[in-house]
């Protein structure tokens, strides 16, 4: 039983990373109907930016203000820089292609993903980079007989906090309503006077920014980063988005955590499960889609015939 609980915590931890990445992904997807293949690479970019910040400046900050300010600085830096990167990506790769329809957008997104990944490799090199150990908090808490790294707890709470903020923005504010309206029917939204450009800007800054934040936390938690790590997260984010229901932002979060838990339990309990984990995850996804085609929290789109 203790083992089960432990695996559950493992699952929620990795799931919360998936959820954070999926959140940014789902926002872009919901509003733009764009499968942003580059999102995973923006996540990677964030983790590299955080790394650069830590190596470059954090020692200075840490000396003056303490470890956690350095951490905060890294997160903030990646958040902001990624927001900028997101806007750039949208302007360069997506905006010129919107009028052409969905499929060319997918190819453009794939191209941007390849480009970003290789650009990161060109700038930072193909070696694995390691977050400096002395600049990352390593204290531990004891809780219910388990030893939990403080960082893990902070990450969990931070993720949860971010998710709640996002949920509140999207579901409870007027701007959030505008975002949701644009996601449902863009033409109609423009006709109703919603400033689409602002919505797109919002989605393309916040989405990648969240991804960047997740990237830094990921780097701090797991310590080593590499230019090709984004692909995996991108795919998981897409899966989580679908699992939770397309266009459903809370759904993406739920989907992410659920995905993490399912994966972990599969790896933990099926003999030889580690090797089959991804296969089973996809199988479960397919079954969910067959029997509950609109995802777990359901899709909020009805089609009038």
């Amino acid at each position: 039983m203790r083992v089960f609980f432990e695996q559950l915590v493992n699952g929620v931890t990795v799931g919360s990373f998936y959820a954070l990445v999926a959140l940014g992904y789902s926002m872009v997807y919901g509003v733009m109907k764009l499968i942003n293949f580059a999102h995973g690479d923006l996540f990677t970019l964030g983790s590299y930016l955080g790394y650069t910040f830590l190596v470059w400046r954090a020692a200075w900050i840490t000396e003056r203000a303490g470890l956690w300010w350095g951490v905060l600085g890294a997160i903030l830096f990646a958040f902001l820089a990624n927001a900028g990167a997101g806007i750039l990506v949208e302007r360069v790769a997506y905006r010129p292609v919107y009028r052409a329809g969905r499929l060319p957008l997918v190819v453009s997104a794939l191209g941007m993903s390849i480009f970003l990944q290789n650009a990161i490799m060109a700038i930072w090199g193909p070696r694995f980079q390691v977050y400096p150990g002395d600049l990352v908090p390593t204290a531990s808490l004891r809780f219910l007989g388990l030893s939990l790294p403080l960082l893990k707890v902070v990450i969990l709470f931070l993720s949860l906090g971010v998710m709640l903020v996002m949920y509140w923005i999207v579901e409870k504010t007027e701007f959030g309503a505008a975002v949701r309206a644009t996601a449902l029917d863009r033409e109609m939204a423009t006709l109703l006077g919603i400033d689409i450009q602002r919505v797109i800007l919002f989605v393309f800054t916040l989405g990648p920014a969240l991804g960047g934040m997740a990237g830094v936390m990921n780097g701090m938690y797991y310590r080593s980063i590499q230019f090709s790590m984004g692909w995996n997260y991108g795919l998981k984010a897409f899966t989580a988005t679908i699992l939770g229901g397309i266009g459903n932002i809370p759904g993406a979060m739920v989907g992410g955590v659920l995905l993490g838990v399912i994966e972990t339990l599969l790896a933990g309990y099926i003999p030889g499960g580690g090797a089959w984990k991804d296969g089973f995850t996809f199988l479960i996804l397919i079954l969910v889609l067959i029997f509950r085609p609109t995802g777990i929290l359901g899709e909020k789109v009805a089609e009038k015939v």
Partner: peptide
């Protein structure tokens, strides 16, 4: 060499921008 794929990604984007059909 190592920039091969970089250019390939760029080429994909450029093609979709100018000739999406």
């Amino acid at each position: 060499a190592s920039f091969r794929l970089l250019f390939f990604g760029l080429a994909l984007m450029v093609t979709m921008i100018f000739r999406p059909g």
